[in-house]
Design a protein around this nucleic acid. Structure first.
Lengths: 333, 333
DNA sequence: CACTCCAATGCTCATTTGAGCGACTCAACG
DNA sequence: CGTTGAGTCGCTCAAATGAGCATTGGAGTG
């Protein structure tokens, strides 16, 4: 079309100031004062068709600007666009202004907490893994419908975090008033044998089985890069390379997946205590929490594979998700 | 009620993030993508009534923001509001950003020139007095419909201005291609006798008579204060006081008027060579050019008395005109 | 348990609006 | 002088929309 700015439309005369103001007056009456076109037409002694055409012209000329605003730190326009683009069930984009990481994380957590409260209904089963973002959410959970809360992963000892998956599940259960399914085990063990032995423990085994009953989960998304994933960071150099070689771009609750969002099988996962890829895929509603443009690739892959159905992201990540080839990707319902 | 930030409506539940985003999605589809409510309803599997109610809620919650923008340095929204408030025939508000006086004057002149070109039709008779703002306009007149141009006032010797009413009329006539009615005489004389003698001169007399045939005029508006009016500044201290005492708040083309916009008769006007108050009132379409909030009083008075029918003002003056008791004032058609 | 209240939902009917079409104006051109 | 073509205007008819009303579904209450 036209490169905006000054280029004129072919066959369209540039409006003089008077016509411009008349058009603006009509636009004002219609859009701002909510009067009907018929009414305006009678006022001005012109036909309603003329009014309609003036309004069309006003919109074409960019004279009327309509925008979807921000409320409660949510960028609703971006949320709506992401919802459409990726066919999401729920979505919230937090308006990460000039905030530093911890602030963004806090805002993300708060928003996710409110969204979760909206989305859950009594009787649902909520699954929660260890994840920094999920922890941030759990800390801000206020009241939740009565649901059973299921621990999806083992506990990870992390410098700077004294909370574990168990604490996350407990806060959620407290907010909900429902029962909690909890087990005590580390997220990652030294080798597959130790992990297998632990999985054989009845508490752990029944705890992990519960993952199959989960209807809703809130999870973090890790990108397969240093500092972008708890799991990547506990992997050995060898494992990092090997998984990357298998096409792994990210992980959710310790389940690594490739660019198509398909879970990737690798011996490394054998030494993790967490739900299986199949179990993850079986959860009806998975709400992914993530922030930072760098995670766009991992998030998009997870969306493509249908691993996640809803998003809570910051504005930077949202922009990157929309920016690249987003439009081409749509997840099946 | 609740005291948190934005008061809630009684009986209206605060929306959670999910509902907020759903609403935003609907708003986006309707307002930004222009889809019909029926269409959206079918998409989402809800009734069209639900969609309509969501859209209402979105607007009430301030989630959808509609604004009338700026184009070509015109504040169209303000122009439209002034048009409504004062029942103007034409109006343009120039968006005086952070500009200094000369820049505002230049922008005002340019806008007035374009507006005049819009408003005039072949066969009209255009009257122009001396005025700084009218000069600024005349200098920017490009092409005008073919009209006769009539000089309304004598010429004023002013420091810093080598152009006079004659020059103004000549530029306009050149832009129009029409004939010019010109006479050579000073705007102000020492005393009434000298002025009377001059008015007796046939050239001057016939020149002034032409004012009666004028259909359209562009004029400046002076406020009755130091530096706010060419005429005030050539008045003697005695005259200034006396006219102020008579209630004069401003002048147009040397015709002083009171707060009701009624021309005020005073011996001072006898020593001016300009059109009469009756002649001014007889002009069908008078476009007033003015800028600066300080002139609001004079402009409003002129509007109230029907001395002017159209405005070209800067944003500051527009805001002041709207701000005060503007809403109460409406000029008869 | 019956009852009321309240909000949410979907319906009907009248009005408003959009799409497309023919009539008109004006100006360039054969 | 008629023709042609572009642009504008107002009309018709069908679709979209708004206002008001009845129904539904709970939550709270006696």
């Amino acid at each position: 079309m036209d490169a905006s700015g000054h280029a004129e439309q072919p066959g369209r005369t540039r409006l003089g100031p008077d016509e411009l103001v008349r058009t603006a007056t009509v636009a004002r009456h219609h859009y701002l004062l909510g009067r009907s076109k018929v009414e305006i037409a009678e006022d001005l002694g012109i036909s309603r068709f003329k009014v309609a055409r003036m309004l069309d012209a006003a919109r074409e000329a960019g004279l009327v600007r309509i925008s979807i605003g921000q409320v409660d730190g949510l960028d609703l326009d971006a949320s709506a666009r992401l919802t459409d683009t990726f066919g999401l069930r729920h979505c919230a984009v937090v308006a990460s202004g000039a905030g530093a990481d911890p602030e963004v994380l806090a805002a993300l957590g708060g928003t996710a907490a409110r969204l979760l409260a909206d989305v859950l209904a009594p009787g649902d089963v909520l699954g929660l893994p260890w994840s920094r973002a999920v922890l941030a959410m759990a800390q801000r959970l206020d009241r939740l419908p009565r649901v059973r809360v299921v621990q999806l992963t083992g506990a990870l000892e992390q410098p700077g975090h004294d909370a574990t998956a168990v604490d996350i599940v407990r806060s959620a259960a407290r907010a909900s008033g429902g029962p909690a399914s909890i087990f005590h085990a580390p997220f990652a063990l030294e080798d597959a044998e130790a992990a297998a032995a632990l999985r054989a423990d009845r508490t752990v085994a029944t705890g992990l089985e519960q993952a199959g009953t989960v209807t809703h989960a809130a999870v973090g998304v890790g990108a397969w890069a240093a500092g972008m994933s708890t799991i990547h960071d506990v992997a050995t150099a060898e494992e990092r390379r090997r998984l990357a070689g298998l096409g792994v771009v990210g992980e959710i609750a310790g389940v690594p997946f490739d660019a198509d969002g398909q879970p990737v099988r690798d011996p490394m996962t054998d030494r993790l205590i967490t739900l299986s890829g199949e179990q993850l895929q079986g959860i009806g509603e998975v709400m992914a929490l993530a922030y930072g443009a760098a995670k766009a690739g991992a998030v998009r892959a997870a969306l493509r594979g249908g691993l996640v159905t809803s998003l809570v992201v910051d504005a930077a990540l949202a922009a990157r998700l929309e920016g690249d080839d987003g439009a081409a990707v749509t997840v099946p319902r």
